[in-house]
């Protein structure tokens, strides 16, 4: 069953800025659907329209059959929203923050108190509940936002960049909370992100979005499979023109391209092919000086369809990747 149906949704700001340009997609009940794209691609604008914060200039969407244009109160009552910012009031306690939203959703007090205790337990904030939010760490605040977004036990939860600005460990922890909560409450999740790993790790299906348009929709694995295989890059010190032929004729190689003095080899499985290639090359007296293997990543999918790399566009992501590499080397 399609729990969210989006039909040609558009938003034009000030008459000329087409932030969202006629997007259409469906989200199935129980899945995690991700909007992946660089900053300014129109992700937040889409989520703001779907959560009835701003009204579309064209098209419509149904959430649980309610139109975001005509049935905004019903939509609001049946969704949960975890916004990009930390919206909890720093001067109040975690408990008071969540209680406020319970009141705003009209949840009876006795029900609300049970839910609050349960949700705070799930995000492991029970002990910090009576502390002011100002004393929370970034990860704690993000978890509090998650708990607040779930107070009405929404069938559909919207998450806008749920791990923006968090360090690596905290990010992984937040992913786990999201998965746990989704399982427990049998929700459908719609999230936006510009972190490739996040989309890959969390989402059942993703939509690649760029300049307000959806470029491709599919499961991350399927999108990557469409690329046709892994990439092995190698260079040798004693290059000869016939090397390209040798590589092309090797079993398991699908395609060879020479860029500069580097060979880019497309293969079904780089793990099994690489040792064979090295053995083959050394038997022919070639000296391999550089070698790398790349699994098809969402970045390469993105590159394939938009002609640009998300990593290159996002300084933030590069820092994240570097950070992660540093973590890996330290271990």
């Amino acid at each position: 069953m399609d729990i969210i149906k989006v039909n040609n949704l558009s938003k034009v700001f000030n008459g000329n800025l087409r932030a969202v340009d006629g997007v259409s997609f469906e989200v199935k009940e129980g899945e995690i659907f991700g909007f992946l794209g660089p900053n300014g691609a129109g992700k937040t604008t889409t989520i703001k329209m779907l959560t009835t914060l701003i009204s579309p200039t064209g098209g419509d969407a149904q959430i649980l059959g309610y139109s975001i244009k005509k049935n905004a109160p019903e939509v609001r009552a049946s969704i949960g929203v975890v916004p990009q910012e930390y919206t909890a009031d720093e001067d109040l306690t975690g408990y008071d923050n969540i209680l406020l939203l319970a009141d705003l959703y009209g949840i009876p007090r006795d029900v609300a108190n049970k839910r609050i205790a349960e949700l705070l337990e799930l995000v492991e904030l029970s002990n910090a509940a009576k502390r002011k939010v100002a004393t929370y760490s970034g990860g704690m605040r993000r978890r509090l936002e998650l708990a607040i977004g779930l107070i009405n036990f929404p069938p559909v939860l919207f998450l806008d960049e749920p791990t923006l600005g968090l360090d690596v460990q905290t990010r992984t922890a937040v992913w786990n909370y999201i998965k746990k909560l989704k399982e427990k409450y049998k929700m459908t999740l719609f999230m936006t992100t510009h972190y490739l790993e996040e989309a890959d790790h969390l989402c059942d299906r993703i939509a690649l979005i760029d300049h307000g348009k959806i470029i491709k929709i599919g499961a991350p694995e399927a999108l990557k499979a469409q690329l046709g295989g892994d990439i092995i890059k190698l260079s040798v010190s004693n290059d000869k023109p016939e090397l390209k032929k040798i590589l092309e004729n090797a079993v398991g190689v699908k395609e060879v391209k020479k860029i500069g003095n580097e060979y880019r080899i497309k293969a079904k499985s780089s793990e099994t092919l690489t040792p064979k290639l090295i053995a083959l090359l050394s038997s022919k007296k070639y000296q391999v000086t550089k070698l790398s293997m790349t699994k098809p990543s969402l970045d390469e999918v993105y590159l394939e369809y938009t002609g640009k790399s998300m990593r290159e566009e996002q300084g933030g992501f590069d820092r994240f990747a570097q950070n992660r590499q540093m973590q890996a080397t330290r271990r």
């Binding site: 009835t52 914060l53 929203v81 990009q84 910012e85 930390y86 919206t87 009031d89 939203l101 705003l104």
Partner: peptide, 13 residues
Amino acid sequence: RFGFVDKILTAPI
């Protein structure tokens, strides 16, 4: 500024 207005605007009030 802190997004609180956005947050409560998505509540059914």
